[in-house]
């Protein structure tokens, strides 16, 4: 090969300060900040998450301690500003503590499936051929079942309990995550810049690390964010059916089930856990939409 310095000799001196056009992620951030809806839902989400994490600080009462005489108090009653449930436990405390499990059961399965499904999908997409066929056809088997039924079946097999519910949901989310990762990887792999990288002697591992991952992670993350809302609803559903968290642990789905019988006595109190599930999953959905818009370079101006 020709000496490596040959071109450097004819060039301009190296520059120390190059006026930078903002980096890709900086651009995404800037566009996000210009979108009031996304900022709104993100603030709301952060508030909900903080309330859950710091539940002992925001709610002074014990979420598991009830008072038989103070059952099913309405919203706004003295000492219980969100009322009490069917055994007289403070609703505010239960909702705050319940967020811990509900959010965990919403986010953890998605995180697990993001790693597993992402790896499988990128592998299938990059390798193509037989490896692709094997992985994707195996995933197709899972598509034969509706997601909630599959989750219930796996939970039934593993036994009830929160960790099993998380595992079951993770398994439910792996196939769609794999499919998304495979699709975007296949698209990206056929692009000329990957060919160009191959043509300059870059190894497969380097191509995946430098060229595929950066371009594929965005769409996968957007999809994962939108899955969180589904995951929160499904995990609440599993708890509602008695397959997730077990009483007396506060959890939104479980609370919804317990308060179901009191819906004619205190309809507003009974609706609170459902309202929170709705708001949280809606926020994740809207945040995911905003993120998708901000990540699309071609829309950016």
């Amino acid at each position: 090969m020709a000496p490596l310095q040959a071109i450097g000799a004819i060039g301009v001196p190296p520059l120390t300060s190059v006026p930078a056009s903002p980096g890709y992620w900086r651009g995404v951030w800037r566009r996000l900040l210009r979108d009031p809806l996304t900022i709104g839902v993100t603030i709301l989400l952060v508030a909900i998450i903080l309330c859950a994490i710091f539940a002992p600080l925001v709610a002074t009462q014990d979420p598991t301690l009830g008072h038989v005489l103070g059952r099913l108090q309405p919203i706004g009653s003295a000492g219980h500003w969100l009322g009490t449930d069917e055994t007289g436990r403070d609703m505010w405390a239960r909702l705050a503590y319940g967020g811990r499990l509900s959010l965990l059961a919403g986010i953890a399965p998605v995180a697990i499936s993001l790693v597993v499904g992402g790896l499988l999908g990128i592998t299938a997409g990059y390798l193509g051929g037989l490896a692709n066929t094997l992985i994707m056809r195996a995933m197709d088997v899972f598509y034969a079942f509706p997601s909630i039924l599959l989750a219930i079946a796996i939970c039934g097999m593993l036994g009830s309990g929160l960790s099993n519910a998380i595992l079951a949901l993770a398994l439910v989310f792996v196939p769609p995550m794999t499919r998304i990762a495979e699709t975007v990887t296949t698209q990206c792999r056929g692009l000329d810049f990957v060919e160009a990288a191959r043509a300059s002697g870059t190894s497969a591992a380097q191509i995946i690390r430098h060229h595929i991952l950066a371009n594929v992670l965005g769409p996968i993350m957007v999809y994962a964010t939108s899955l969180i809302s589904l995951s929160i609803i499904l995990s609440a559903g599993l708890s509602f059916l008695g397959l997730g968290a077990t009483p007396p642990t506060p959890e939104w789905g479980l609370m919804l089930n317990a308060l179901r019988q009191s819906i004619y006595v205190q309809p507003y109190v009974a609706a609170l856990p459902g309202l929170l599930i709705f708001i949280t999953s809606m926020c994740f959905n809207l945040a995911s939409d905003g993120l998708r818009g901000a990540m699309d370079v071609r829309l950016a101006r």
Binding site: Y24, L191, D192, F193, A197, A214, N215
Partner: peptide, 10 residues
């Protein structure tokens, strides 16, 4: 394709 042959993230 001048666009497809450059990595959009680089």
């Amino acid at each position: 394709d001048s666009y497809a042959s450059l990595n959009p993230r680089m």
